[in-house]
Design a protein around this nucleic acid. Structure first.
Length: 689
RNA sequence: GCCCGGAUGGCGAAAUCGGCAGACGCAGCGGACUUAAAAUCCGCAGGGAGCAAUCCCAUGGGGGUUCAAGUCCCCCUCCGGGCACCA
């Protein structure tokens, strides 16, 4: 939607209509969806936080406020109706006892409640305003404001407006009658659509009360932090800290907030006007869509039998093939009689099929289960087959799915588990969210169209270079600002690998049948060390962070060493068997990044096993180990030189070597050594005065 | 407003546990090869001072902890993302 119009048809105004819709009761799973996030330690913390905020559990209480019957005008002198000119005719007798349930997380502040605020859509509002056109008109305005702001997404900055209904309700704790208002900041779809307003201790109520001159009652005070502090220093209002003490609260005065909450809920429960309650921000999942492309909702409306589910042996309901897509609006399926008209499965009489289709998020919630058993014609999948494969070890997707898709599919899994269809409680063990590709500030996505196309790059440099370049540009969990510069370097690198390997090829092939020399010459040892360091690096990275950019850098370092000694290698400075080991492993490592080149080289090497079946090479810690270590030497934490010591030598040797270094001797001359930080193999730091 | 990320050379980035900041590339500069160019190869390359050895400064800004901070702690700025009168 753009400016209240369709984003594709800028002249088409988007309007809201009341529709009867199908919902999935995901709220039944809200608590479990929230709790199980704790177990998903293979998921990024970011995603778990986003889901937590989306579900947003609030623990509080429901409290009933009894509506004062119309004829009992118990308005005290403090309360005067605002805005409305109340007339005598409004005070007519009304026999029915009515209650307004309120959800609050701060029942401890209830002695400070000075009004009730209802959402404009609250059912009682319609009743209260029935015979009062002025009130009715004002409520309509409030509702309209709220709706517009909601659509624009700036509800939070909507100026608070409201109107008194002229009616009152009794605070069950104080027995005081407080006025009932309608306010545009109260939402019908959260909690009960009614709140108790405690202006002294709630930001929003405070703002509203200031604007309409409603009474403020302070009922909590900060705890004294020091003995000498004044006891009831008045806090800056609104004061919302929960680590506080109650005042002006009858029998609860003097209690801490938390203790008061417990006791007050217990009292409300005992008296039957309230109870502990938990509310979630998560709403039920509306799945009805009035469009053709979607899974039909398998329900049938029969005049005699009412709502009848399509029997299992008639599932799935298939979409009709012949359909005319008109511009008429409404569900196109409802205009296909052979689809919409159906016999009632119960009585066999004429009935009407539901023509709404389901949200496509429904499909994406479980498609991966079908993958485990794609040829099953009796059921979507077999439970035991799914049990073998699930949960998914590793799932990769964009952060943009952190909330909707990934909550829906978690819900779907739990729902199927409760139906006995699957045995796992969570669909995905480990989740990896790759960053987005950004081009000049615009993000790439399906809905916005692909801003960047790799086609040109593939045409000029090939698929290997393009793929490898994308992996080299940044680690995959980070957003990537797409630039074309740099792919040339990758292309050059791949050419270098090819040239080197092809030149070495005859000897590589010869080396396969030879065993490694019993002792390696210095160059052989150096190259084998680099090879095994590279293998170690990649093995660890594949198993851990997936920072493929550094993997590629490591392979480049290896190749740089190889090509630096290319001439020596070519003239036989390295045994054929060593050359074979290096080339073979190089190709195996490169396979992940440049599969086509690797396949080509593998074929040239005439290996027996297909490349894709070849095992990932193991690295040899002993071969990877450095024998001489370069250790930095600092004076007062500043680098002064680097000394070489044999690997495994102790701190004393390191210290002696460092002290004998001419630069260090010069720097230490005439100074007093206060302390020496010695980390064998790592660092020396002389602290001097 | 709240909750997450992020900020490092001209550019993409690296530094995985507090221990040599800038690996590996791109772009650039100098050289070799060439009639010439392309390709390739060799070298230089954070900033500043100095003939030089060398020294100083430097990871968005300010403070702190530490022998030692891109990394830990506190405050702030900017950028990106998510949520937002949620009672």
């Amino acid at each position: 939607m753009v400016n209240g119009c369709c984003w594709r048809h800028e002249e088409t105004i988007v309007e809201q209509r009341e529709l009867e819709q199908w919902f999935f009761r995901i709220t039944n799973y809200a608590d479990e969806l929230l709790r199980d996030l704790e177990k998903l330690d293979g998921w990024p913390e970011k995603v778990r936080t986003m889901q937590r905020n989306w579900i947003d559990r609030s623990d509080g209480a429901l409290v009933d406020f009894a509506v004062v019957p119309k004829d009992e005008d118990r308005r005290g002198p403090r309360y005067s109706p605002v805005i409305l000119n109340l007339t005598e005719t409004m005070l007519e007798p009304s026999p029915d006892e009515q209650k307004i349930a309120v959800f609050t997380t701060r029942i401890d502040t209830i002695f400070g409640a000075t009004s009730l605020q209802l959402a404009p859509e609250h059912p009682l509002v319609a009743q209260f305003s029935e015979e009062h056109p002025d009130l009715k008109k004002k409520v309509r305005e409030l509702l309209e404001e709220q709706k517009v702001a909601k659509e624009k997404g700036d509800l939070a900055i909507l100026a608070k407006e409201g109107v008194a209904t002229g009616r009152f309700a009794t605070n069950p704790f104080t027995q005081e009658a407080i006025p009932i208002w309608v306010a545009n900041y109260v939402l019908m779809d959260y909690g009960t659509g009614a709140v108790m307003s405690v202006p002294a201790h709630d930001e929003r109520d405070f703002e509203f009360a200031k604007k309409f001159n409603l009474e403020l009652k302070i009922v909590i005070l900060p705890r004294r932090s020091n003995e000498g502090d004044q006891d009831n220093a008045e806090p800056l209002l609104p004061y919302t800290q929960e680590d506080s003490l109650l005042i002006n609260s009858g029998p609860y005065t003097g209690l801490g907030c938390e203790e008061a909450q417990t006791q007050m809920v217990a009292f409300a429960e005992k008296q039957g006007f309230g109870k502990a309650s938990t509310t979630f921000r998560l709403k039920d999942w509306g799945v009805s869509r009035q469009r053709y492309w979607g899974t039909p909702i398998p329900m049938i409306y029969c005049d005699k039998d009412g709502l009848v589910p399509v029997p299992e042996d008639q599932l799935p309901v298939l979409l009709p093939d012949s359909i005319a897509i008109t511009q008429e609006g409404g569900s196109p399926l409802s205009r296909v009689p052979e689809f919409a008209q159906v016999k009632c499965p119960k009585c066999g009489g004429m009935a009407r099929r539901e023509t709404d289709t389901m949200d496509t998020f429904v499909d994406s919630s479980w498609y991966f289960y079908r993958y485990t058993d794609p040829k099953n014609t009796r059921a979507p999948f077999d439970t035991d087959t799914v049990a073998y494969w699930f949960p998914i070890d590793q799932y990769i997707g964009g952060v943009e799915h952190a909330i909707l898709h990934l909550i829906y599919s978690r819900f779907w899994t739990k729902m199927m588990r409760d139906l006995g269809l699957v045995k796992n409680a969570e669909p995905v063990e480990r989740l990896f969210t790759q960053g987005m590709v950004i081009k000049n500030g615009a993000k790439m996505s399906k809905s916005k169209g692909n801003v960047v196309s790799p086609d040109d790059m593939i045409a000029s440099y090939g698929a290997d270079a393009t793929r490898m370049y994308a992996l080299f540009a940044a680690p995959p969990d980070r957003d990537l600002d797409w630039q074309e510069d740099g792919v040339a370097g990758i292309s050059r690198f791949l050419s270098r690998v090819y040239r080197f390997a092809m030149q070495a090829m005859p000897r590589v092939i010869a080396g396969r049948s030879q065993s490694l020399p019993p002792t390696l010459n210095p160059l052989e040892r150096q190259l084998m060390r680099k090879l095994h360091q590279t293998l170690r690096r990649l093995t660890q990275e594949f198993d851990g962070r997936w920072h493929f950019n550094t993997c590629i850098a490591a392979i480049m370092e290896l190749v740089n060493e190889l090509t630096a000694d290319e001439k020596t290698i070519a003239s036989g400075g390295v045994a054929d068997s060593v050359l074979y080991a290096i080339t073979r492993n190089l190709v195996l490592m490169l396979q992940a990044f440049a599969p086509y080149l690797s396949a080509e080289l593998w074929q040239q090497m005439a290996e027996d096993t297909p490349l894709l079946r070849a095992a990932w090479p193991t690295f040899d810690e002993a071969l990877a180990a450095e024998h001489v270590l370069e250790v930095p030497v600092q004076i007062n934490g500043k680098l002064r030189t680097v000394v070489s010591v044999p690997a495994g030598s102790d701190g004393e040797l390191l210290r002696a070597t460092a002290e004998h270094d001419p630069k260090i001797q010069a720097a230490l001359a005439g100074k007093e050594i206060v302390k020496v930080v010695l980390l064998p193999g790592k660092l020396v730091n002389f602290v001097v005065r």
